[in-house]
Simulated assay, not measured.
Amino acid sequence: MRWMILAATLTLAAGSTASQAAQIYKWVDAQGVTHFDAQPPVGQSAQELETQKAVTPPPPPPVRTESSQEQQTVDAKVKKQIAAQEAKRKEYCETQRTNLAQLQNNPRVREEVNGEFRRFTEEERQARIAEVKKSIDDTCN
């Protein structure tokens, strides 16, 4: 909670002083209109106005506490889970690519149903090829 308050305070302080750090010029044109701008006019004299310079506060030192160690432990666990999921995804993709090759190269594909082998019709084989291609496109790319 204290860190959030400190971060909000630093953000507000930096934002309010940053707008005051730019150089401002003042001049009056031929019609008598006074102008203020960050760029002086070309071929005309301008008065340089004093502005406050922004003071950048030093960054807060990194905090090393037990919660940092706990966070590192959690991070390591999450990275391990992500690596395991990625390995499973790669294995699945490899299996699907093998299945696709078998379906495309073998017009006499069989499937085991209730302990008996049954041959796919051409329509079933083409439908299964489309399903496997979609699965590969959705998961493996």
Rank of each mutant, 00 (worst) to 15 (best):
E48R: 11
Q126G: 02
Q85P: 01
R108Y: 15
E94P: 01
A101F: 14
V74G: 00
H35E: 04
L49V: 12
Y25P: 05
S68R: 06
S135V: 08
T51P: 05
D37W: 13
E50S: 10
E50H: 08
T98L: 11
Q69H: 08
G43H: 01
V63F: 10
Q104C: 00
K77T: 15
Q96I: 03
I5R: 01
Q20L: 14
A127K: 14
K134L: 11
A13F: 11
E86A: 03
E86V: 04
A130R: 06
E124C: 06
Y92C: 00
A38F: 12
A18K: 02
A46S: 13
Q52G: 04
N114P: 00
V55H: 12
D75T: 03
R108I: 05
L103G: 03
A130I: 02
W3Y: 09
A21G: 04
Q47G: 00
F117W: 13
S16K: 05
P62S: 07
C93R: 02
A14H: 11
F36H: 10
R119S: 07
R110F: 12
D137C: 03
A22E: 12
Q31L: 05
Q23Y: 08
V55M: 10
P61F: 06
F120L: 15
V28S: 06
A38S: 03
R128G: 02
R64H: 14
E131S: 07
Q85Y: 15
T34Y: 06
K134M: 06
T139A: 15
Q96Y: 09
Q20F: 10
E124F: 13
A83L: 08
C93E: 14
A14K: 08
E91Q: 10
T34N: 01
A18T: 10
K53N: 09
A127N: 13
D29L: 01
E86Q: 08
T11M: 13
D75R: 01
K133L: 14
N105Y: 14
K134F: 09
W27A: 01
D138W: 14
Y92F: 15
I82F: 13
Q31E: 14
Q85K: 08
A18M: 09
A13S: 09
T95F: 11
T56L: 14
N99F: 10
I24W: 13
E86H: 01
D75I: 04
P61Q: 04
T73A: 13
T95G: 03
L12M: 02
L49E: 02
P59M: 07
Y92Q: 09
R128A: 06
Q96N: 07
N141C: 01
L12A: 01
A30R: 11
V109W: 12
F120G: 00
L100Y: 10
E112W: 14
E131G: 01
A130V: 03
E50C: 01
A83R: 07
T95I: 01
